[in-house]
């Protein structure tokens, strides 16, 4: 027993990399420097949702000269811990990248009035707490509209990993767009249970293609390549989501894009310039943060009337003349 305890204590010291011998740690930056922190629910190497947030953080560092920091949280028990740690260190703005961060942000926001907490999606607000809401639905509606006009089978599929409201909401808008393009068309969704399971996303897409779907919308994050690959194999169309993924495959008809760096920098700037009010920050097609981008590689294959119609509907949404349905979350 005693040997074990000793071993553990010693290990605790020994596992500390380079405790002795290394140059002394840098002193923390002076308090005048603007500081931003980011919590992501998954790895930022996903080339999708989390990667976008990290790019946003780096943009804040570059454009606002901020000192930035990122942490990937593994479970909900860590949300509050990480918010507290950032607030206690005098972080000026702290982003929680997802709906699920709201509770913890609200609890910590009460205790640390000098830190602003921003969650990407959600509805909770306070003097120092607000969500950024990306209305990606406005662009996914356009994807659906294009699919509705072009689909021969009048059947479209939707693929994702975990069933989350933000995902279901983009599906809802896609389906509405699809019906607007072809009232007789219908869409089915498949969830694989994981945003990392590329094989699962591919299998799901093949299954949808076998059911006759000739357009597949996806919001599958890192697993999206499985969708692209399967669509290319079956000669059907798919869509890019969150980032401009058009270059990845000629099977991609268009991408529904969020310019996360711009949204993050704008939010952080409002905090830095003391203009933050605690009101939800919404970004749709009008703001230019959300865009619908045709894939140049398939430009010749889209009928001219469809191109015209999308352009026209895009304008109507941006002007607020057409309300795109979104989920209640």
């Amino acid at each position: 027993m005693r040997r074990t305890s000793l071993a553990l204590l010693f290990l605790f010291l020994a596992s500390v990399p380079g405790l002795g011998g290394c140059r002394p740690a840098e002193t923390p930056a002076s308090d005048s420097r603007f500081r931003a922190g980011l919590l992501t629910p998954g790895p930022v190497s996903d080339a999708g949702w989390n990667a976008g947030a990290y790019e946003g953080l780096k943009a804040i560092e570059k454009e606002l000269g901020a000192e930035v920091s990122h942490v990937q949280v593994k479970s909900p028990s860590e949300f509050e811990e990480q918010f507290r740690a950032y607030a206690a260190k005098g972080t000026d703005v702290c982003f929680g990248h997802g709906f699920e961060f709201q509770d913890a942000a609200a609890r910590v926001a009460k205790e640390y009035p000098n830190t602003v907490f921003i969650t990407t999606s959600g509805s909770r607000t306070a003097k120092n707490l607000a969500p950024i809401v990306f209305e990606l639905e406005e662009a996914t509606y356009l994807c659906g509209l294009a699919a509705g006009r072009m689909s021969k089978s009048a059947k479209a599929g939707m693929v994702s990993g975990v069933e989350l409201p933000s995902i279901k909401s983009t599906f809802l808008a896609f389906e509405a767009g699809l019906r607007a393009g072809n009232p007789g068309a219908r869409a089915v969704s498949v969830f694989t249970g994981s945003f990392e399971d590329v094989a699962g996303a591919k299998t799901a897409t093949l299954a949808l293609a076998d059911q006759g779907c000739d357009f597949i919308f996806q919001n599958a994050d890192a697993a999206a390549l499985g969708v692209f690959r399967a669509a290319a194999e079956r000669g059907i169309y798919t869509f890019g989501a969150n980032k401009d993924q058009n270059a990845l495959s000629p099977a991609i008809l268009a991408s529904a894009v969020i310019d996360m760096p711009r949204a993050f920098v704008e939010a952080a700037r409002s905090v830095k310039e003391k203009k933050f009010t605690g009101a939800p920050i919404r970004y749709g097609l009008k703001s230019g943060v959300i865009t619908f981008v045709w894939n140049p590689a398939v430009a010749g294959k889209v009928p001219a009337p469809v191109l015209d119609e999308i352009k026209q509907v895009e304008g109507r949404i941006a002007r607020g003349e057409l309300k795109v349905p979104r989920g209640d979350f």
Partner: peptide, 10 residues
């Protein structure tokens, strides 16, 4: 999968 991502084996 034709690619690798973190946690691919799922």
């Amino acid at each position: 999968s034709h690619t690798f991502v973190e946690g691919l084996t799922a």
